[in-house]
């Protein structure tokens, strides 16, 4: 699974030392999305990790034990329905069935509950109407 985490570091902890452990000992694939850290002052870091759920849980417990605050972020898919032409291209690629288009009205329907945030729709909408937003 993929999870987005917002980490807040206390001044005495810097990320560098943890990144290595997380990759090596917990087998997490890490992608840093945004970092605001000053050495010796602490800071915030937004990262995406991809790994089996239990590895992620163990990794989080490890970071917390070192004084890092960890909060997970939900990312949500949004689209600008006012510019939608109801072509159906996004629904074609949507693997979860969150996006669908069908008889009788052939207008796009988005069921956010079903979305697995695979982001294929970001690429497949020819009008570029999709975006991802992070919420805590």
């Amino acid at each position: 699974m993929e999870k987005k985490l917002l980490l807040s570091f206390p001044p005495e902890a810097t990320f560098q030392s943890f990144a290595y452990e997380l990759v090596k000992d917990y087998d997490l694939r890490i992608n840093i999305l945004k970092a605001e850290i000053e050495i010796g002052k602490g800071g915030k870091l937004l990262m995406a990790i991809e790994a089996p759920e239990e590895n992620i849980e163990r990794g989080i417990a490890y970071m917390k034990s070192h004084g890092i605050q960890v909060s997970s972020l939900a990312n949500k898919v949004f689209y600008d329905s006012s510019r939608c032409v109801n072509c159906g291209s996004c629904a074609s690629s949507c693997p979860s069935g969150a996006l669908s288009i069908s008889a009788p009205d052939w207008k796009l329907k988005f069921d956010a509950e079903k979305c697995i945030v695979c982001k294929l729709c970001l690429k497949s909408c020819p009008m570029k109407l999709f975006s991802i937003e992070f919420t805590e």
Binding site: N86, G88, S89, S92, I101, S102
Partner: peptide, 25 residues
């Protein structure tokens, strides 16, 4: 195609439009 699924070579495939029937109407 408009049922949303077609059968090709014994396999059910999800079928979706690329052109807008809503706009055409």
């Amino acid at each position: 195609l408009r049922t949303g699924e077609i059968e090709v070579a014994g396999k059910r495939i999800k079928a979706t439009p690329l052109s807008s029937l809503d706009k055409a109407r």
